[in-house]
Design a protein around this nucleic acid. Sequence first.
DNA 1: ATGGCGAGACTCTCTCGA
Length: 256
Amino acid sequence: MQFVTWNVNSLKIRLPQVLEWLAANPGVTALGIQETKLEDTAFPQAEIEAAGFHVAFAGQKTYNGVAIIARAPMTAVSINIPGFADEQKRVIAATINDVRFVCAYIPNGQSLDSDKYVYKLSWLKAFTDWLQGELANHPKLILAGDYNIAPEDRDVHDPAKWEGQVLVSGPERSAFRQLLALGLTDSFRLFDQPEKSFSWWDYRMYGFKRNAGLRIDHLLVSQALKPLVTACVIDKEPRRVERPSDHTPVIVTLAD
DNA sequence: ATGGCGAGACTCTCTCGA
């Protein structure tokens, strides 16, 4: 089984790339997508189903929006964080092959002095509380997403330059550790990885070419699934095409 | 040097992302 997270930065632009990537990766069980930037009425459900997949989605105009594309049927699809009033569509979860797959687009925060940063931290608190219940109900759980948090300095191309910035701040990293404290494990760090492994690069200043990136897209696995994990890799292949997303997929492989 | 790039929208200039 393989589960994937990929912030596509507009599914309208990236749908052909997504379908091509899925065709090239037949082992993928389910793909969690962030930043679809599409209202539900505009979502390309028919095209995705015509390609042989099941799909669940929750979106809005212009910003945010999440979806799950799976090769097997999904059950118990849920949207957003119950009890947390939020117009923004940032969470979708579904059960696939007995695994609870949660796809999240965690807020960016903009800057440490922004209202959006306050929203990010309160969102993370509500999300963590909700996830605790999800884990109790579904011990086999994967949390896939764009976390907008680089957990450690080794996840940052230039830690000195980023010090004090959003995505690396102490409260954000503390919120990330609170997720781990639920019993989740960063599957990427279960294995030896190349130094300077990142999942996002700034479009500007030749960020990808210079590998000036951050590792902010993560796949956390629950204790019940951790022993089954055999690999976790960042796939930079999608960066080879015209008009790539600024994020690239991260893939976790589990024994059946 | 707070710039740079890319996407979206009540667009030709603005917001937002990370």
